[in-house]
Amino acid sequence: MTTLRYGDRSQAVRVLQKNLNSYGAKLIIDGDFGDVTEAAVRAYQLKVGLVADGIAGSKTQTMLAGNDCQQLLKNVDLVNAAQRLDVPLASVYAVNEVESKGKGFLDNGKPVILFERHIMYRQLSKVRQEGDDPAELKHHADQLAAINPAIVNPKAGGYAGGTAEHQRLATARLIDNTAALESASWGAFQIMGFHWKRLGYASVQDFVTAMSASESQQFDAFVRFIETDPTLYKALKARKWAEFAKLYNGPDYQRNLYDIKLQRAFERHADCDCGQAVAA
């Protein structure tokens, strides 16, 4: 499903306009995604509770088609996060738009994940209990890496993508359930499982249950991630987008223009009254 946004001109935009009109919009069906169509998209999103970003992605188009969207991120989640973080709503919209992978769940209903074999190697080597022998743990991890390098490996890689990542995870869970769950990134914001304790979850299993419940829960983990990283939080508060992008995305953030995208997204949402509309 093609994401439609401001500036697009196509037959798909005509279909979008027609669908919006069936829900009360009074658009001229001209296939031009301009200011009026963007405003109609935001109004519809607010009406049904979706994130009101004015972008007609798969979620908005799915909702327009009458499908169930219980698992999807809600606009009120972003409004509440802005209040919780004490930042403008536009800042939350920006980080959600740029840092989210778009969808938190696969078509089969399972959460989006990426299994990291090098993290599995690290977590298997980790001392967890008094009396654990670090040398013995590392030796065991090395043995597993020799037997199954696609699942346990000192080096990153081996990604399969999509539903196949769950197959890799299932294999890893047969080796060590906790280490395996800690070694995958979860949901729309790809939060690593090993952060569970820092983020305030009772266990990695508790974290995974939350990530498997809804995009709202996944977004809550993202907000916790920001809250528990003082430097990242400070960069967001000050709207130092380059610093925020470097901290969240790593040193290659400039290659993907994350800081520029964040700045532009913030500016685009700066005048939106989406929060007031929800709170009213």
Score class of each variant (00 low, 15 high):
61 Q>C: 09
62 T>Y: 08
62 T>H: 12
64 L>R: 08
64 L>T: 09
65 A>Y: 12
66 G>R: 10
66 G>N: 14
66 G>A: 13
66 G>T: 04
68 D>G: 12
70 Q>H: 15
70 Q>C: 08
70 Q>T: 14
71 Q>S: 14
72 L>S: 09
74 K>E: 09
75 N>A: 12
75 N>L: 12
76 V>W: 04
77 D>L: 04
78 L>V: 14
80 N>Y: 00
81 A>V: 11
81 A>F: 07
82 A>Q: 05
82 A>Y: 06
83 Q>A: 05
84 R>C: 03
85 L>Q: 12
86 D>V: 06
87 V>H: 11
88 P>Q: 14
89 L>D: 08
90 A>N: 13
91 S>A: 15
91 S>D: 14
91 S>Y: 02
93 Y>E: 08
94 A>M: 04
95 V>Y: 00
96 N>V: 06
97 E>G: 00
98 V>M: 06
98 V>T: 06
99 E>P: 00
99 E>T: 00
104 G>R: 06
105 F>H: 08
105 F>V: 07
108 N>F: 11
108 N>Y: 09
109 G>Y: 11
109 G>W: 11
110 K>C: 03
111 P>R: 11
112 V>M: 05
112 V>I: 12
116 E>F: 01
116 E>G: 01
116 E>D: 11
118 H>I: 11
119 I>Q: 05
120 M>F: 04
123 Q>P: 06
123 Q>I: 00
124 L>Q: 02
124 L>H: 00
125 S>M: 07
125 S>I: 06
127 V>W: 10
127 V>Q: 13
127 V>E: 13
129 Q>S: 13
130 E>T: 13
130 E>Y: 11
131 G>D: 07
132 D>R: 07
133 D>S: 13
134 P>L: 12
136 E>A: 14
137 L>A: 08
137 L>W: 03
139 H>P: 02
141 A>Q: 03
141 A>C: 05
143 Q>F: 01
143 Q>E: 15
146 A>E: 15
147 I>A: 15
148 N>W: 08
148 N>A: 13
148 N>Y: 05
149 P>W: 10
151 I>K: 02
154 P>F: 12
154 P>I: 11
155 K>L: 13
156 A>I: 11
157 G>A: 11
160 A>G: 02
161 G>V: 10
162 G>H: 12
162 G>L: 09
163 T>Y: 03
163 T>C: 04
163 T>H: 10
166 H>M: 14
166 H>I: 01
167 Q>N: 14
167 Q>F: 05
168 R>Q: 15
168 R>D: 00
169 L>C: 05
170 A>I: 00
172 A>M: 05
174 L>C: 04
175 I>T: 04
182 E>A: 03
182 E>Y: 01
183 S>E: 03
183 S>R: 02
186 W>H: 06
186 W>G: 04
186 W>Y: 10
187 G>E: 08
190 Q>K: 13
191 I>V: 15
191 I>H: 02
